[in-house]
Amino acid sequence: MIVVQNLIDAISLGSVYALAALGIGLIFSIMRLINFAHGELIMVGGFVIYALAGNPMLVMALSAIIVVTILALGMERLAFRPLRKASPPTLLIASFAVSYFVQHVILMIFGSRPMGVDFLSVLGESFEFAGLRVPRLQCIAIVVTLALMVGLVVFFRASRIGVQMRAAAEDFTMARLLGVKADRVIAVAFALSGILASFVSLYLVAQTGTVSYKMGVNMVLIAFVASVIGGMGSLTGAALGGFIVGIVSVSLQAYLPEELRPYRDAFVFLLFIAFLLWRPQGLLVRRASERV
């Protein structure tokens, strides 16, 4: 029974990692940018909820989604669009700069003391069936993640801009030659990544009950690892990678002997290094290809 319980715990954590990894993977697949400032989108969402504490839940949640989406668009317009022709390392460094900038703005406004927030606390409670404990929030996280993933798939297959984005992800130069508007495609990608990030904010605040200016840092690192494992550039891969990281980390926490448990993360990353030696391009990318 405890095996099933651990599986439930693992899938729920994996679904949130998947959501974060999708945000990273989406931007990477379109413009080869590993956006470390994605964590700050998540963090700002948390602070919107904190600043609006006491308002109806729906107001807090919708405001977080809207503000984070606008911030994502702003990042693209002000920081990444002028650098569009720059090399991937330059873009990566720029994303670090944006990340530090946003962190320090939040630090100036709210200070560095982590603050408690009462947000969706009822969802923390769990229902039990057949001896299993399923927190409502975890259930919702899984459902929401799956719904967002299905939504993305439909968007990419059925909508005009979605098809253009897939074309751009495949071969950006060719897509532009065929009349795909680069600015529009990239802006939409950032808006989508903002929406995905804001859902991670909602989950994190509901789950942890706190906000702090560093709350996005760890999440974005894990999301990055997850998208590498799944295969950079593949959205399905990013989601799959998220689930795998969640399952591996919960399993190690559950089954490592007590003396080794403090070093859980070392084992998690050791496994990933081993994995990358075996399959450097990730799970769902057929071959590692450099695009021009």
Partner: peptide, 22 residues
């Protein structure tokens, strides 16, 4: 009765709670 660890930045401690409950 036992000692367990968690990383302060872990978004959830479900498996630690499962162990306490067990």
């Amino acid at each position: 009765l036992g000692m367990d660890t968690f990383g302060g930045e872990d978004p959830q401690i479900a498996s630690q709670i499962t162990r306490i409950k067990a």
